[in-house]
Nucleic acid binder design. Structure first.
Length: 476
RNA sequence: GCUCCCUUCGUCUAGAGGCCUAGGACAUAGCCCUCUCAAGGCUGUAACACGGGUUCGAAUCCCGUAGGGAGCGCCA
């Protein structure tokens, strides 16, 4: 089936996708990919992409995380049509501001008696779970409070026990749906315990708020992490009980580390922020994510628009994909090579010598950029170009000695006139008759201390006035 | 423990029973170009997790095994 086509009685509906993070931490690479794919899925047609902040857990949600999350998405170039800072009639887009709406739908469920109050304490529930696990059974809610009489409820309430509200899961039924990534799915309701949809403090729990919001916001495709796959029947049950439409669901596998284990701190950086701080560019990150768990006949660096055009939800992979930093490096290198001089200068600003004028900075950036992947790679070249004359590595020593004083006398004389490579090389050639590597290598080595590095001509131009001449004269 | 998901070159993947001697991209190796590195060009190495079926024919369908992952929360 084509998931980009959602058909209702009224005909094809425009696609609405969403990214619904909870602001309990930094934007994880896996979530960033989910956001990207949802954006692309919407943009592939003329659909809408919405950002919804799932901050119903007051203890763990922090406003700072929401701000950071949006900043990271924006940095990646992921822009939403509606969200916390772009409210419209379907909002508000923070769940913490939707309590009234949840209350309304909750009242419907209460009236239809598909929910009931549960007075079990966390301790009791924990004990029950352990006991079931120990007995080799699935740790499901035992149904202790499912058949309480009005009198029993009143009694518990009188004892001052707080109540959560559980959804009464029908017995002996089958919930089926077609996951647009994994294909047909079928679950037995008997495997699902009655679950909490309203916490003791009155707030809406995930299964409930998430499902209700998808319906209310007109979401047509819910593309999310595979960790939600087995939870989907619960949400379908809620939506069905409420008579609300459900989106079609698609679940993408999680991103794992190089060792195949779930991406975690021990793999190094896992958040978008960390990559940004290390100097990775958004285009590189996004191009890498685009290929993770998704295949496209398109090759090479793509813009978000090109990705959107080429995005194909039928080509979403089912297997977990590894986040391979080596592949990210390839995209990063490519991105760096394509930067305009101004952008490259800004990108390298943190490692450039303080107070360097714009023109010198541009010359430097132009010279070294082809050899960089990350800003830190430029540090060595900053030292070589702007610092004290670099010491010669042993092999370089040999090269310099082999060239002889006459070589460097000619070189220094020419360099005194200008930092123009052809002119300097021409003078040396005339004086020594050397050519090829014999001609160039002593020059490189005397100037940089190394036998490898960026092209000499731009490097020469990047050096402060008189620097080249000085370094060459050392060996004359 | 139970339920569910997953397994093709190093990596991302194409693959819907014969078009597969398994294709592509990146990585990698060699060569060319070249003052070195990078870039570019050319050529190469490299995979169907395993075992059984079904079939004239299986990467593809079925069963099992192994390995990985998720869910079963007053987290989302």
């Amino acid at each position: 089936m084509d998931p980009t086509e959602s058909v209702s009685a009224a005909g094809p509906r425009p696609v609405v996708t969403r990214f619904a993070p909870s602001p309990t931490g930094e934007l994880h690479l896996g979530n960033a990919r989910t956001a990207l794919f949802n954006l692309l899925l919407a943009r592939h047609t003329e659909g809408r992409f919405v950002l919804r902040i799932e901050d119903t857990d007051r203890e763990r949600s922090r406003e700072g995380h929401t701000t950071a999350l949006m900043a990271d998405l924006t940095w990646l170039g992921i822009e939403w049509d509606a969200g916390p800072n772009r409210e419209d009639e379907r909002g508000p887009y923070r769940q913490s501001e939707r309590a009234g709406l949840y209350q309304g739908f909750f009242a419907v469920l209460e009236e239809r008696q598909t929910v009931y109050p549960c007075y079990c304490t966390p301790l009791e529930l924990d004990l029950s779970r352990r006991a079931q696990l120990a007995a080799g059974r699935p740790p499901r809610y035992a149904g202790t409070c499912s058949a309480l009489t009005a009198a029993e409820r009143a009694q518990r309430q009188a004892q001052g026990l707080g109540a959560t509200w559980r959804f009464r899961v029908p017995r002996g039924e089958r919930v089926e749906f077609v996951d647009f990534v994994h294909g047909p799915q079928s679950f037995l309701t008997d495997d699902i315990g009655d679950f909490v949809i309203r916490r003791a403090d009155g707030s809406a729990a995930f299964f409930f708020s998430n499902a209700v919001d998808d319906a209310c916001m007109g979401v047509t495709q819910a593309l999310r992490g595979e960790d939600h796959l087995t939870n989907t029947p619960r949400q379908m049950l809620i939506l069905a009980a409420l008579g609300l439409p459900r989106p079609s669901y698609g679940h993408i596998s999680l991103i794992v580390g190089a060792d195949g284990a779930p991406l975690s701190k021990r793999h190094g950086a896992v958040s978008v922020r960390e990559y940004r701080e290390r100097g990775y560019l958004p285009g590189a990150v996004v191009n890498h994510l685009f290929r993770l768990g998704h295949s496209s006949p398109l090759h090479g660096m793509l813009t978000l628009d090109e990705m959107a055009r080429g995005f194909d939800a039928t080509h979403l992979g089912r297997a977990p994909s590894r986040f391979d930093e080596q592949q990210l490096h390839v995209w990063q290198k490519d991105t760096v090579h394509r930067l305009s001089t101004e952008s490259a200068r800004a990108w390298l600003a943190p490692v450039l010598p303080p107070g360097l004028d714009e023109q010198s900075a541009s010359a430097f950036v132009t010279a070294v950029r082809p050899n960089l992947v990350l800003p830190e790679d430029a540090r060595a070249w900053v030292r070589i170009v702007f610092g004290a004359p670099p010491p010669l590595e042993p092999s370089a020593e040999v090269v310099v000695r082999g060239a002889g004083a006459g070589y460097f006398a000619a070189a220094a004389a020419a360099a005194r006139e200008s930092a123009d490579l052809p002119a300097i090389v021409g003078a040396i050639r005339a004086a020594t008759g050397r050519k090829g590597a014999e001609l160039y290598m002593p020059l490189r080595v005397a100037l940089t201390g190394l036998s490898h590095g960026p092209e000499l001509a731009p490097l020469l131009k990047a050096m402060p006035a008189g620097q080249a001449c000085e370094r060459l004269a050392r060996f004359a």
